[in-house]
């Protein structure tokens, strides 16, 4: 489907739904602004203990740290808040952005001696189409559409404020939480446990003798 300007579609990333299939990694390579180069991240959190994976697109900060620490002034934001890849003529390949980005998004491409990053498929979104990764994502961990559609079809609330230590960062891209009441997403908040701590009931078995 093609969105009009008035639809104001948003990008939503719900990491918890990622199934690690890498459709996004493969599709990212097909994006017209960086063909052949995949810029999305997808990590296995800890292969030995969980199948959880962590996808990461650029969150497009309102005040992007990457742009602020760029010595070459090579990272620009468009009027609609897209933080673009480093301007090719300017980027001098220092990797400041790679290290400073609180979300760990920019990639230093050694071959090109240059930073490249997710630009939310500017070629597609500027024409009203969903970015490649959010188009293909089978689990809708990466999702693109209107806020109304999200609220209609999905549980959870949209949040775009994050705490990294004392630094609060607001982004253009949303994530999903159950309750907004707890405020910005604190990335170093403790995580909860789940049945997955003992998927096969082994500890219970040991207790039962």
């Amino acid at each position: 489907m093609r969105y009009g300007i008035d639809d104001s579609p948003v990008f939503v990333i719900d990491q918890s739904r990622c199934i690690g299939c890498e459709a996004c990694v493969q599709a990212c390579m097909e994006c017209g602004t960086h063909r052949g180069q995949s810029l999305i991240h997808l990590e296995r959190i800890d292969q030995a203990t969980t199948t959880q994976t962590a996808p990461m697109v650029c969150m497009h900060c309102e005040d992007p740290t990457c742009a602020q620490v760029c010595p070459a002034d090579a990272i620009k934001q468009t009027e609609d808040g897209i933080v673009q890849s480093a301007l090719k003529p300017r980027c001098i390949g220092c990797s400041n952005c790679v290290l400073a980005c609180p979300f760990g998004v920019p990639k230093y491409i050694a071959d090109f001696d240059q930073m490249m990053k997710c630009d939310m498929c500017t070629d597609r979104t500027s024409e009203g189409y969903a970015p490649m990764c959010a188009s293909v994502c089978p689990s809708e961990a990466l999702w693109y559409g209107t806020i109304e559609k999200f609220n209609e079809t999905r549980s959870g609330s949209l949040l775009r404020d994050f705490m990294f230590g004392r630094q609060e960062v607001r982004t253009k891209v949303y994530t999903v939480v159950d309750e907004l009441g707890a405020g910005a997403l604190d990335v170093f908040a403790p995580t909860r446990s789940h049945w997955l701590d003992d998927p096969f009931g082994l500890e219970q078995e040991a207790l039962d003798g």
Binding site: R17, Q52, P138, S139, P199
Partner: peptide
């Protein structure tokens, strides 16, 4: 993989998900 999104649409309505498998496959998580 595409079936995953159908399952999530059920779960967004409050459906329970049961997974039966010798492995904790990604959906089982």
């Amino acid at each position: 993989p595409i079936t995953t999104s159908y399952i999530w649409r059920a779960r967004d309505r409050g459906a329970k998900l049961i997974v039966q498998d010798p492995r904790v496959v990604p959906l089982a998580r």
